[in-house]
Amino acid sequence: MALRSVRHYPGFFSIAMLCLIILYAPLIVVMVYSFNDSPSITNWGGLSLRWYFDVFTGPEAPRFRAAAWNSLTIAVLAATIATAIATAAALAMLRAGKFKGRSLTFALINLPLMVPEIVIAVATLIFFTMIGFTTGYLTILIAHITFCIPFAYLPIAARLQGIDGSYEAAARDLYATRAQSFFLVLLPLMAPGVISGYLLAFIISLDDFIITNFVKGAGMETLPTAIFGSVKQGIKPNIMAISTLMLGVSILFVTLSYLINRKGRQSP
């Protein structure tokens, strides 16, 4: 009883519930209104999927489809490349002994998290303009790879840190080459961290608005910049349908990452 009472503070439960309500209320409201069968966003006209059909076949559909394609391919490429870079870096940081410049490299990996997003956006735009690189798909991709690296690195390094060195030592004792012991022993053990890092990098890339908005150049859109452009003229019901779809994708990915990590924690 004494143990319970020092942990219990009156009102804290209500505040925690309030916290959840604040975090979820706007999302739930938009989700509900995306099924509204009414061209007005204020009045409720019954349940319908018409705005979902509108997203795929309506007047704005080609624009959104192109933007979604760009967003998706950039996210896949950026997450893949960033995960490969981050996996290599994690091996060097955690399995290559102590070396000079290790803490500097660690700071370097985390730098994209420390510089304000808008500053990265400005610096990247100035850089590409200065070297005469035309802004577009490739500049967005390069910027996304750069800021995805720390997001991929953190779960991978956390996972690698928890893997005992004896597994690899056993493989080497049994005459596995370093490449064999990496691909057959270490990588499968690291997989939950690598997948988690990949998924987080993917979502972070899909999510980005500010940096993309600066380096995209004229005519190129990703989903967030296309949505921002539409919202500037007012929130329309089709925007709520797109938002709900993207919401579903994000929640699916985070849930996957969570489940993979939890499963990874149960096995060695």
């Binding site: 975090l23 999302l27 938009v30 999510d207 949505i227 921002f228 938002s243 993207m246 919401l247 929640i251």
Partner: peptide, 12 residues
């Protein structure tokens, strides 16, 4: 919610 697109959260 942190992993949900910030633009979408703000619009919501």
């Amino acid at each position: 919610p942190y992993w949900v697109n910030l633009l979408i959260r703000t619009v919501s």
